[in-house]
Structure formats: structure tokens, C-alpha cells
Nucleic acid binder design. Sequence first.
DNA 1: GTCTATATTTCGATAGAC
DNA 2: GTCTATCGAAATATAGAC
Lengths: 195, 195
Amino acid sequence: MPRATATIDEVGAVTSTRDRILDVALDLFIEKGYDKTSLREIAEILGFTKAALYYHFESKGDILMALHLRLHEFGREALLTLGTDAVTLERWHAMIDDMVDQMLANRKIFLLHERNQAAFEDLHRKEHEEDHDDMHAAFSRVFSDSRVALGDRVRMASAFGAVMGGLFLSGEAFIDVPTEQLGDLLRDAIRRLLV
Amino acid sequence: MPRATATIDEVGAVTSTRDRILDVALDLFIEKGYDKTSLREIAEILGFTKAALYYHFESKGDILMALHLRLHEFGREALLTLGTDAVTLERWHAMIDDMVDQMLANRKIFLLHERNQAAFEDLHRKEHEEDHDDMHAAFSRVFSDSRVALGDRVRMASAFGAVMGGLFLSGEAFIDVPTEQLGDLLRDAIRRLLV
DNA sequence: GTCTATATTTCGATAGAC
DNA sequence: GTCTATCGAAATATAGAC
């Protein structure tokens, strides 16, 4: 009799095998990097073999893409608030301010992207070039928009960098800080930059 | 007759083969990532074969290490100004302010590190664990120093992140901005954060 | 100092049994 | 849904000629 496709973890939540694969892959991709993580390693941690992964995903890149989609979603939401007009410091400030909570709640996914930029670019290059309308592309558009004063654009980029710095560049330094408190500190930082 | 070990480039500067290898590797490691860059590729661009690289470097990791040392140097200088006392916002500000010019003058090396963090951690893990006293380690120490108020530490991390954001997160957006002007804008940003 | 040739390993992926 | 077995490709690295 084949093993069930879903298990029950310590807190009683039902987790599909597919999601368990993604969780393990997420941790490994962050810790060792996408390229240096082998499918064999992922499978062994989960207690089955490499080949079994191919029932759930078409390829290794498919796993990375599935993780990418998690970021893609709240990317959309935030970017809609920007629209196509010239972005002002105020609008940028409002967006980043909202994003801080989302970034705190999804640290791992952001960390994954920060630490595997090359792998994601490769993925986008191969994935049929369908207008990869993700956060990175939208940000580049804003930072290159000559309708906005250069000084303002640099401040916008710096504000996002400041949040990323407070979250990740610090390593594990702020890992024990309550997210609410850390969120307030980061919002204070971007307020200094953008107001 | 074997080819000479040094060539003369367009501006008349003498460049050793070793340095030419490092220059090509730097570009490829940034563009495609360390793992996805093969020695074959590096060698072909330089006009010789993979095996020839092993005359100049012991291994692929050795090439990465050689590039890493370039960062290590001005890391030391900046970190000496911090010492072992509790770091104040003022001291941090002075250090970052000085570093902006160095970072602008060495964009590529910083970008290499930002985009290949996993590879560098692997290198450090294997390289005998000799107290890898680099910038990253020193920063983590500062950000974890409980003698300093948490709010100040987050601001320090954010300030460094702001500079990184202005330099790299923007992609190619600010590539044409004169370095002096971009430096002023970044120094203005960190002043907002740290004063 | 650069070459050819090859050893060795590891990985992603497929086929087919159960 | 997971297994065993295997393939083919590509990579790092080595040995030795020139």
C-alpha cells in the first residue's frame, strides 16, 4: 500500500507532500544556494528518493518557480498602488510602509530571492520571456523613470534597501526581535528617508 | 614558443594573465553566478583551454578566494575605525560615509559578494575556519552588540542597506550617474538615517 | 605557459516495476 | 506515490606532452 500523500505535522496541520517538498527546498535553497542543493538531498530529508520528486514537479527549476510564485502574489498587490504615473516620494513611502509587514511575515521568501538572484534570472530567461512583470522589473522601471528627479529615485531605492538591510544583511542579529517592534523600527527608518 | 604571460591592453597597461583571469571571472561570476560559470567558459574567453587555468590557480574556489581578498583589504581599514568599543551612531555614520566612495569605486566586487553569498559561505566553511574576520562577520558583531540600543542597531543596518540599495538593487538604473553625484545622494540618505 | 586526453564525480532526468 | 536502475551531459581536476 502506497504511503499517503499528506501527513499531519506537530501542530496538527495537514500538509501535502508537494508543500513539504517546497518547505524543505526553501530552507536548503536559502542555506546552501539553489545550485549547490541537489534533488537527492531534498528527497533524502523527506525520506524518499530523488525520482519521487518528479511525480510532483517536472524539473528542479519547476520547484524554484513554485517558490517564486509565492512572492509574485503580494508583489502584484503592492505594485497596483503604483500604477503607471510618475511615482512620488509619498506614494512610494505608502507602498513600502505597507510592504514592511508583508516582508516580515515572509522573510524566507525574500531571503530566497536575495540569495539566488542569478538562479531566478536564469529561470526568467528560459521561461519564454513572458513579460516577467515581477517586483524586480517594476522597481527597475521606477528607478529609471526620468520623469522623477534623480535624487528622489535614489532615495526610493535606498528606502527599500534600508528595509532589506534591517531584515537580512544583519544575519541572525534581529531574529529574536518581535516582528511588531522590528516593523516599527524599519518604518521609522524609511520615514527618515522619504519624508 | 609559448605565449607571453603578460599582455598590453588598450590603454597600454601591463596585465598579467592571472589578473586577466580574475577580471573575466569577476564579470562572469556577477552575470551568471559562480556556480553556473564553468572554467571552460572563462578559459575560452581568454583564448586558451580549461586546463591552463590550473597553472595559475589551484582550483575554482581559489579564483573566488582571490577575488574575495580584494574586498578584504579595504574592509580592514574601515573596521579598524570601529574597534571593540560599543559603536555609536556617530562612529557608524563616519565609517559608512567614508565607505561610500570605496563602494562606488569597487562596485563590481561588492556586487560579486551580494550575488554569490552562498558560494562565499561555502568557501569560508571549507577554508579551515580561520576566524573569517571579514566585513560580514564584523557587521554581524555590531548588530548583535547588546550594549547598543536595538533601535540604533537597526538604523545602522538600514543605513548600510540603503547604500547597497542605491548601488545595486536598482539594477542598471543609476549606471550613468556620475559617481560623485551618486555618492553625494547616498551620503545624504545615510545622514537622514543616522543623524 | 598552454596543450591534449582522460579520470572521476555528480547531477538532472527518464523508464518502468510495484 | 514511491521505488530501482540507468542514461547522458557537464563539471572539476589530473597527467603528461610540448
